[in-house]
Design a protein around this nucleic acid. Structure first.
Lengths: 225, 225
DNA sequence: CGACTGAATCGTACAGTGTACGAGTATTGA
DNA sequence: TCAATACTCGTACACTGTACGATTCAGTCG
């Protein structure tokens, strides 16, 4: 029985060259995850199957299991890859700017990869998310948040970003779909007059609302001086 | 080719009696959905398969498809059943109380059925949710929110409830799991000192934080007098 | 009574899924 | 040259959603 790396160490195929005997470049964790992200981006969560993933890599389905323990691990790694964060080299001015930068980058990443927002809460926190939380935690402390209030503050921010992004992502369907939904609403106008009239499903400045709400939230969470 | 009801009309089995020939009560949309909710509650989203559902109903798998178009419809109907809302008969005092009541009821329902929170953003809005949104909309208008601010206000509240509930639900795993996660964090203490020290993954007064944040949010959204 | 109709149930079959198992191959080190 | 290691992959199994068609049953009409 061979020793699967799966969780740790080796796995890098030094220079085996040779490729997969059918010409393509050799398998590797990096390539697998990159292709998985591609597939997820184009086909959605249900579009990712081990066989399709392997096909796209020019490999047999079972070959993936040398590099990866199971499908869930593919999700975890893809999620973590997409959520990686390197803070900007240019020194940011003040704690507030660095918090806002990280959060908007986070949100941006989830919107670029719409499957990620819905997946994130269902998987354990990976290194990328832990790193972001650590940064957030340190920055809030630096901003003067008391130890006792820290957890509440962190989760408030987390909840805000997740809620806003998941919702927005779910309304990112084609305009046709939305129009259809709104039309259905109008047909039942007697039942839902108010949300029909306000065109709730159609007119929403998501990005503006996000920034505004975030400012308010940060104001409320940090000590007023 | 028989005419499937699936979306409309008939479907009620008048008094066919006879049952399923194997004794159980006859199939019906109500029974199917009720059993689906049971299954989802006990086995989670992945635990619901058409065959298992049919087994539990003492029926053949394909019999379900007389009452339901496909599996997605089962999800939609289960979700809607679980999220139904009848406002309290006792007249509530003021708009604020009625908003808070509806939102806490909503949150309570999602926490009682943990699969629902993660599912809700991925499905179209059903009658129950539309009804809740309509109520929210009318109440906010009554509270003095301007037409132009209405959509932003509604979505802010929605985002808040969704974010808080999805996150809390995802941390509702067994205490053992959480302990393990925290221990892993401590092992990597050098990497994540701050969130390790604050025991972010363990100590969180979700319910208290929810109520507090909601109050703040409503304060910010409604016009100050 | 028999013929007919439509509602409802269900068995079989098919394409697709994740992955356990074990055989196969290529590359390395002794 | 031999053995170990790293890696690939074919086959098989249990399970999924559901298309299709046969079957059963209740009720109505002639």
């Amino acid at each position: 029985m061979p020793a699967k790396p799966s969780g740790a160490s080796s796995r890098r195929s030094r220079s085996t060259g040779a490729a997969t005997a059918s010409g393509g470049p050799p398998l590797s964790l990096e390539r697998i995850i990159a292709t998985a992200v591609e597939l997820l981006d184009t086909q959605g969560v249900d579009g990712l199957s081990m066989r399709r993933l392997a096909d796209r890599l020019g490999a047999g389905a079972m070959s993936l299991y040398w590099h990866v323990g199971n499908k869930e691990e593919v999700f975890d790694l893809a999620l973590d890859a997409v959520l990686a964060y390197g803070p900007p080299e240019a020194e940011t001015h003040g704690w507030r700017a660095s918090v806002v930068h990280m959060l908007e980058d986070w949100r941006g990443a989830m919107l670029r990869h719409p499957w990620s927002a819905a997946l994130l809460p269902r998987r354990a926190l990976g290194p990328s998310m832990l790193g972001r939380l650590e940064l957030l935690s340190q920055t809030l402390l630096r901003a003067g948040v008391a130890d006792a209030d820290l957890n509440v503050a962190i989760w408030s921010v987390w909840n805000y970003v997740m809620g806003a992004t998941i919702t927005r992502g779910s309304f990112d369907r084609s305009p046709d779909d939305l129009e259809a939904a709104q039309r259905r609403l109008t047909e039942l106008g007697e039942r839902y007059p108010s949300i029909d009239r306000s065109r709730l499903l159609l007119d929403s400045d998501w990005d503006g609302a996000f920034k505004k709400g975030l400012d308010l939230l940060l104001d409320g969470l940090t000590p007023k001086r």
